[in-house]
Nucleic acid binder design. Structure first.
Length: 564
DNA sequence: AGGCGGTACTG
DNA sequence: CAGTAC
DNA sequence: GCCT
């Protein structure tokens, strides 16, 4: 117990050293985050609440590791500080997450109407709370005065300290927010750091059930998700596409940046009013902020007009062909091709490889999404065929389908097999592909596995429902060793953003995560990070749960892993 | 000034 | 190896 | 392009 108390105090000290404030009493109007490694009961007791629902959704409940991560965050990732990765209670995993629609498309069956409350309750200023908090923790080292520990000790409620005797300590803290939101009324909080940055208090409408009305009211968004900055998003998206279709690393990363800005804007609840407000969003810098303002003031972005030249448009068209990227598209343009027909007829001597031929032939099919039902129908044909080859197979559908999306861009099917009876799934893929071709479910192959008798291989192809006039659909088969099924499930379920955050958290914690497992002690060549000097030691890979647990990521069902 | 994921398949 | 896809 |  003494130990726990000391640890609590040292943790409190760390918090204040990094510019956080501890709040003696739970007050929803000032508390921005709740930090606890304790269990639900003790935490609630310390807060003086009856249940977790009483905590407003804008206040995330995070573990101590969140603080560690914020402080230890070194390079290039604001997402490290995403609170959901550090949520103390899975019920509150969404608290503090700036997503309007993170629960929008989950498990939507026909009788399941979109849940308006869920859609809106996640939203709001949580975003502000989040990244403001991050900045406080990381940037405010220059604050010279911090409260004396005894004061802190006294200021903490007795109950809270008692809690830490038997469980891990619980602390609350409050970090002053920078006045980045221009219409937030700035005020200086109690601490006397005169030279500190502008501080403001974020207005929390604490005791309202936070649902719909309170926040979305200023936009008459009776229709769910009308994003207040949609016009800005559209223009930035265009610009992003332009950069994406150009060859060259810089453009690639520019597109990457715009993509991030777009994601942020999509979840930003208010119309951007000023350059400063735009600038205040993590991921929006000078350049993008001024573009945002231009769009808002003039309704357009001149950059787009003179950047969206003919070669770019044609390039984008060509890149819609499977197997054609920036490089090939540009070559074809240089050869004089301007339309898909030009390409088809081999104008300028352009040649297509087999995959590209297929990609061109089914251009529109491949570029459109299929209804969830269709993905299911196709899968329901495939799975029995696979099980007929070997009843021991594990055959599951991954990707956006597993996340519950209403429409899917492709079908990803994971295949593996328990080995306890001494058998494996090696070689099954070849047989399955044959069967599926025979059944006229598989129609074209795009990429075959290098060695189909490996336990781990990848197949890419096209399929359809064996009916007249049904569209071609992209389908992938992925086989993995039974041992790595958990990591593979995570990896192939996504979404991308979620995976990236997992990977980065793993890295910060000293692990490396990939589709094969969670590894410790991976050493990479600093000059070529793709080279591993030491492959590391496998820590976990068999189940999703254990990987989540080791990474201290609260368990989330696939439909809860939507971040993009 | 350097990072922004890491891997597999094609030709 | 570069290019592409995921 | 943005962030450290």
């Amino acid at each position: 117990m003494r130990h726990a108390t000391e640890r609590t105090r040292s943790r409190m000290d760390i918090i204040v050293r990094h510019g956080g404030n501890l709040i003696p009493k739970f007050d929803v109007s000032v508390v921005t985050h709740i930090v606890t490694d304790a269990q639900k009961g003790p935490t609630l007791r310390a807060l003086g609440l009856r249940n977790l629902d009483k905590i407003p959704d804008h206040i995330p409940t995070v573990k101590w590791s969140w603080i560690v991560s914020c402080i230890g965050a070194t390079q290039g990732d604001a997402r490290l500080n995403e609170v959901w990765l550090y949520a103390a209670f899975s019920e509150r995993i969404d608290a503090g997450i700036p997503k309007f629609n993170s629960t929008l498309s989950r498990n939507r069956t026909k009788d399941n109407v979109p849940d308006v409350v869920n859609i809106s309750h996640i939203s709001q200023f949580t975003q502000d709370g989040n990244h403001l908090q991050e900045r406080n923790l990381i940037d405010m080292d220059d604050i010279s005065e911090f409260p004396d520990p005894d004061n802190l000790q006294r200021s903490l409620p007795r109950a809270l300290l008692d809690v830490t005797k038997t469980h891990d300590p619980l602390e609350q803290f409050y970090a002053k927010a920078k006045a980045e939101l221009e219409n937030g009324s700035p005020y200086h909080s109690d601490s006397e750091c005169g030279s500190g940055p502008d501080l403001s208090r974020i207005e929390f409408h604490a005791d309202m059930p936070l649902a719909k009305k309170g926040w979305t009211c200023d936009k008459r968004a009776d229709k769910i998700d009308v994003c207040p900055n949609q016009d800005v998003i559209d223009k930035l998206q265009e610009l992003m596409e332009i950069h994406k279709s150009r060859l060259g690393e810089e453009d690639r990363w520019r597109a990457f940046s715009y993509n991030k800005c777009i994601r942020i804007l999509k979840s930003y609840p208010r119309r951007i009013q000023s350059l400063n407000e735009a600038r205040s969003l993590a991921g929006v810098g000078e350049k993008t902020a001024s573009k945002i303002i231009e769009i808002i003031e003039t309704g357009q972005l001149r950059r787009i007009d003179y950047e969206n030249t003919d070669d770019i448009k044609v390039g984008r068209l060509f890149q819609g062909i499977y197997g054609v990227g920036q490089s090939i598209a540009y070559q074809w343009y240089a050869s004089g091709c301007r339309t898909l027909d030009d390409v088809l007829s081999g104008k300028g001597g352009v040649k297509l490889n087999p995959a590209q031929e297929i990609g061109l032939k089914f251009y529109s099919d491949i570029n459109s999404r299929m209804p969830r039902d269709e993905a299911k129908a196709i899968f329901d044909l495939i799975k029995p065929i696979a099980l007929q080859l070997d009843p021991g197979l594990f055959v599951e559908i991954m990707g956006s389908f597993r996340r519950g999306k209403a429409d899917c861009g492709d079908i990803d099917i994971l295949i593996t097999r328990p080995t306890d009876d001494g058998k494996t799934h090696a070689g099954i893929l070849s047989r399955l592909l044959r069967e599926l071709h025979a059944a006229e479910i598989l129609t074209e192959d795009l990429a075959l596995p290098e060695n189909p008798y490996d336990l781990e291989c990848i197949y890419r192809g096209l399929c359809h429902l064996p009916k007249e006039g049904s569209s071609r659909r992209r389908i992938d088969f992925l086989t993995v060793p039974w041992q790595s099924r958990g990591a593979a499930l995570i990896y192939y379920t996504g979404d991308d953003i979620f995976n990236r955050a997992m990977r980065m958290k793993a890295r910060v914690m000293g692990y490396a995560l990939n589709q094969r497992g969670l590894f410790a002690g991976v050493v990479r060549d600093p000059h070529d990070r793709s080279k591993k000097l030491n492959p590391g030691q496998l820590i976990a890979s068999e189940t999703e749960e254990e990987i989540f647990r080791i990474l201290e990521v609260p368990w989330q069902e696939p439909h809860q892993r939507i971040r993009g």
